[in-house]
Design a protein around this nucleic acid. Structure first.
Length: 441
RNA sequence: GGUCCCAUCGUCCAGUGGCCUAGGACACAGCCCUUUCAAGGCUGUGACACGGGUUCGAAUCCCGUUGGGACCGCCA
């Protein structure tokens, strides 16, 4: 039991779950699950100014959204709690006092400061970056306890990782230069080092560290844009790791079984929206219609469409007809409004692009079409093809107006599939509205 | 400035001394399919930063150069 893997994600609750934080959490989670270990959530709320309970909540729900469940944490409990640093103050105090007593640290005002030794070679073998060594004289004295009684990051992280039995410290590459400082504290306390595995940074398109300037950066923004948790998960997992040469679209379970910390790459990765779009579309395609419906429905509602006027069956089938069009649930919702209401069509199209001569032909054709015995896509298409040949008009000259009248869009799924799904009566109603079908005369 | 890290197509990855005239994916271009758009199929453009070594042999190892990045807070 003592040698099971224990990893942690230790965010500070000073903002929503950032895409970089999500990446770090994800890799920790993958390693824990792959190894059958424990994934711990620790809240590093030692910045009294900026930490809030609300952000703590936001971060946790962001992780839940991504499907990263933790075994120990502020809400989950565990044998190594408390899991909020603000609640572990006596512990930090205790070791700080010990360090002062041993002459390894000194007090300055209310603060406790670690005395930086000289001539010590600090060495660690990073699971990802390999052998790294730094001489202690390149470092300075570091504050352990701040004047307000709170521990600093570099100190608390050591105490907690040790006391919580963390076996692998997996975090962003920006912490590599912090590691030697922490090593000094491990040494001073006579503790063994955990294994360290630093993760490559995630950059924006301009190759600068990802920030708000790059648009969406909190995982919630991706949810709101219509991305699936599974695809954000998949995409993030691909930043700095690969599951093998021909395996880019995968599930959580597949990632868990394939993941290897030693296969993580060192080079910073650029966050590429295009790739995320592709991955999301792939995951969307693989969904069964009703699950897809659950994803799209909120966006239809957001658009003010009459979702409740239709059956679940009809709505799900609408997405089947849509057939993978749209890279996000939001796009899919936007591409399919005409299935829910004719109003959307009327808002886009008024039939004025058809001249009188054209209208005459269309009335003749649509009149016959609407009279067909079977209202199914194949016979509709078959009839249309035959008719267009018989009257020497191009297929698209009679199919396109139909598309416009039915969907109000130049672009849609196969128009006969759309017509079938809409039903004969609804099609007649829409065609009649634009005068494409003769009212009695 | 000091310390540390990184360096393969525009982007994400594969590649761990010979299988590499460097492979896949996204994006891009063309073609096919076709009632539009997607999807799908096919084809193409496109990279080992540079210079020295080591070696019979280097994208892979070593050194240097250049270019990026991180850290150097009583932030985390």
């Amino acid at each position: 039991m003592t040698d099971t893997v224990r990893v942690r994600f230790a965010p500070s609750p000073t903002g929503a779950l950032h895409i970089g934080g999500g990446h770090t959490a994800l890799f920790n989670w993958l390693w824990a699950r792959h190894m059958g270990g424990r994934f711990i959530l620790r809240i590093e709320d030692t910045d009294r100014e900026r930490s809030t309970k609300e952000y703590e909540e936001t971060i946790m729900s962001g992780m839940r959204w991504l499907g990263l469940d933790w075994d120990e944490g502020p809400d989950a409990g565990g044998d190594y709690g408390p899991y909020r640093q603000s609640e572990r103050l006596p512990l930090y105090r205790k070791y700080a006092d010990q360090l002062v007593d041993e002459g390894k640290a000194y007090r300055e005002g209310d603060a406790v400061i670690f005395k930086n030794p000289e001539g010590v070679k600090l060495i660690f073998d990073d699971v990802v970056y390999g052998h790294i060594e730094v001489m202690s004289e390149t470092l300075k004295d570091t504050v352990l306890i701040k004047s307000d009684g709170m521990p600093t990051y570099n100190y608390a992280v050591v105490i907690d990782d040790h006391c919580m039995g963390i076996t692998h410290v997996i975090r962003g590459e920006d912490h590599i230069s912090n590691t030697p400082k922490q090593l000094l504290i491990y040494d001073a306390l006579g503790w063994d080092y955990p294994a360290f595995g630093h993760l490559p940074m995630i950059l924006g398109k301009d190759k600068k560290k990802l920030s708000k300037r790059h648009g969406a950066t909190s995982v919630y923004e991706f949810r709101d844009m219509g991305y699936m948790p599974d695809s954000v998960f998949n995409f993030l997992a691909l930043l700095g790791w690969s599951a093998g040469e021909n395996n880019e679209i995968f599930s959580r379970d597949e990632a868990v079984s394939l993941f290897e910390l030693s296969r993580v790459t060192k080079r910073a990765a650029v966050f590429d929206m295009e790739k995320l779009n592709f991955i999301n579309q792939e995951h969307l395609k693989r969904l069964d219609p009703y699950t897809r419906l659950d994803l799209v429905e909120p966006f239809w509602r957001e658009m003010g469409l009459p979702v409740d006027d239709h059956s679940r069956e009809y709505l799900a089938q609408s997405l089947v007809v849509l057939c993978g069009r749209g890279q996000t649930a939001k796009e899919a919702a936007g591409y399919s409004d005409y299935f829910l209401t004719f109003e959307a069509v009327k808002g886009r199209y008024d039939g004025s692009d058809v001249d009188d001569a054209g209208r005459g032909m269309l009335r003749k054709f649509y009149g016959e079409l609407l009279g067909l015995p079977e209202w199914k896509a194949p016979p509709l298409e078959e009839f249309t093809r035959t008719w267009s040949e018989g009257h020497s008009v191009k297929m698209k000259d009679i199919a396109m107006p139909l598309r416009m009248a039915l969907t109000g869009m130049k672009v849609s799924p196969g128009v006969f599939e759309v017509a079938e799904h809409l039903g004969r009566d609804e099609c007649r109603r829409r065609l009649a509205h634009f005068g494409f079908v003769g009212s009695a005369e």
